[in-house]
Lab assay of single mutants.
Amino acid sequence: KEFRPGDKVVLPPYGVGVVAGIAQRSVSGVSRAYYQVDFPGSRSKAYVPVEAPHSVGLRKAL
């Protein structure tokens, strides 16, 4: 896996977040693995496909 729990990442347009782990989510009846990204200071979460994280701009924070 490219990202691990605890990694600081950037996800446009949300900003800097932390990978909380990998979650299985069902979309249109198909279960897939997603990185769960939490954003400190907020209750917001984002789910990014493990198979294509760069397709939505997910990258490691510098």
Rank of each mutant, 00 (worst) to 15 (best):
S55F: 08
S44C: 15
R59T: 11
Y34Q: 00
P5V: 15
V16M: 11
E2Y: 12
V50K: 03
A46H: 10
S55A: 09
P49N: 05
S26N: 12
L58S: 02
G17Q: 01
P53W: 15
P5G: 03
H54P: 04
V16I: 13
G17N: 00
G6D: 01
P13M: 07
S42G: 12
V10E: 07
G6T: 04
E2C: 13
L58E: 08
V9E: 00
V27G: 04
P40A: 09
V27D: 07
S26A: 09
G6L: 03
P53D: 05
Q36K: 10
G21N: 07
G29E: 03
V18T: 08
S26V: 14
V30S: 07
K8T: 07
D7F: 02
A23F: 14
V37C: 04
R4E: 08
S42I: 12
Y47F: 11
G29N: 04
Y14G: 01
A52V: 05
D7E: 08
V56P: 04
P12L: 08
G21I: 04
S42W: 10
Q36G: 01
E51S: 09
V10R: 04
S26D: 11
S26R: 14
V27W: 10
S28Q: 13
L62N: 13
V48W: 03
Y34G: 00
S28R: 13
R25V: 13
K60A: 12
Y14K: 02
V16A: 10
G21M: 09
E2N: 10
A20K: 10
S31C: 13
I22L: 05
V30F: 06
S55N: 08
R32G: 14
S42P: 06
Y47G: 00
P53H: 08
Y14M: 07
Y35G: 01
G29Y: 02
S42Y: 11
G57F: 04
V30W: 04
S55T: 10
V19H: 00
A23S: 12
A52T: 07
V19A: 00
L58T: 03
D7A: 04
P40M: 08
Y34N: 00
A20M: 13
R43M: 14
G6H: 02
F39S: 01
E2I: 12
V50S: 01
I22D: 01
E51Q: 06
P5T: 11
A23W: 12
V18M: 06
L62V: 14
G29S: 03
S55E: 11
P12S: 06
R32Q: 11
R32T: 07
E51Y: 06
G57Y: 05
V19N: 01
P12D: 07
H54I: 05
L11C: 07
S55I: 11
A52I: 06
V30M: 07
R59A: 06
K1V: 15
V56D: 05
V27P: 04
F39H: 01
G6N: 02
R59K: 09
P40S: 07
V27N: 07
V9K: 01
L62S: 13
G41N: 12
S26M: 14
G21D: 04
A33P: 09
K45W: 08
Y34A: 01
G15Y: 03
P53G: 08
V50Q: 02
A23Q: 11
G6A: 05
D7N: 03
F3P: 03
F3K: 01
E2A: 13
